[in-house]
Lab assay of single mutants.
Amino acid sequence: ETKSLTLVLHRDSGSLGFNIIGGRPSVDNHDGSSSEGIFVSKIVDSGPAAKEGGLQIHDRIIEVNGRDLSRATHDQAVEAFKTAKEPIVVQVLRR
């Protein structure tokens, strides 16, 4: 079962304390579909994302501050987090 969660993150020394993997390839599949998503791959101990109620590894990131990342490329997702103003509201899907 997958549930949708909304989390609020604040940077600590400029970092949110997690890494992402995935992202849509720069070239779409011929039918326009994509199974890619942006997923949390690593969480830094005691970083902002590790706090209670924070992110978990394998969370799929859907949205950052209202910006849809469900079909974003990896670079677009990285840029969305880099430029996001605080508080950073992150919507994820968690299995």
Rank of each mutant, 00 (worst) to 15 (best):
I38Y: 01
L16F: 04
K51S: 10
G47Y: 07
R94P: 02
I43R: 02
R71I: 07
I57D: 05
I20L: 08
P87S: 01
H58M: 13
R11S: 05
S26H: 14
Q91D: 08
V40I: 13
A49H: 12
D59A: 00
G66Q: 04
N65C: 04
G54M: 10
V92T: 02
K42E: 15
L7H: 03
R11T: 05
D75W: 07
L69Q: 01
R94Y: 01
D12S: 12
E86M: 04
N19R: 09
D59M: 02
G14Y: 05
D68I: 03
D68V: 02
I20N: 00
I57K: 06
K51A: 12
R67N: 10
I21G: 09
F18A: 00
S15M: 07
I38P: 01
F18I: 05
L7W: 03
E63N: 14
T73D: 06
G66T: 02
S34E: 15
I43S: 02
L5S: 03
V92S: 01
T73F: 02
R95P: 14
L7D: 01
T73G: 05
R94Q: 02
S41C: 06
H10E: 14
S15N: 10
D45W: 05
S13Q: 14
V92W: 02
I38K: 01
V40A: 07
A84H: 01
H30I: 10
P87L: 01
G66N: 05
I20D: 01
E86T: 06
G66P: 02
K85T: 13
E63F: 06
A49V: 09
P25Y: 06
R24M: 11
D31P: 10
T2E: 09
P25R: 10
N19W: 05
D31N: 13
D31F: 08
P25A: 11
D59V: 00
I21W: 05
S70E: 06
Q91A: 05
S33A: 14
R24P: 08
G22P: 06
V89Q: 11
E1C: 11
R71F: 12
D28W: 09
S15T: 10
G14K: 05
R95K: 08
H10L: 06
L9H: 03
S13G: 12
A50T: 08
E52P: 12
S34Q: 09
V89S: 08
E1I: 15
L55W: 00
T83S: 07
I21C: 10
N65F: 00
A84C: 06
S13T: 13
I61T: 01
E86K: 04
P87C: 01
H58K: 08
K51V: 09
I88W: 02
E52V: 13
I57E: 12
D75V: 10
I38D: 00
A84K: 02
G37Y: 02
I21H: 08
L9Q: 00
G47S: 13
P87N: 02
N19P: 00
S26G: 12
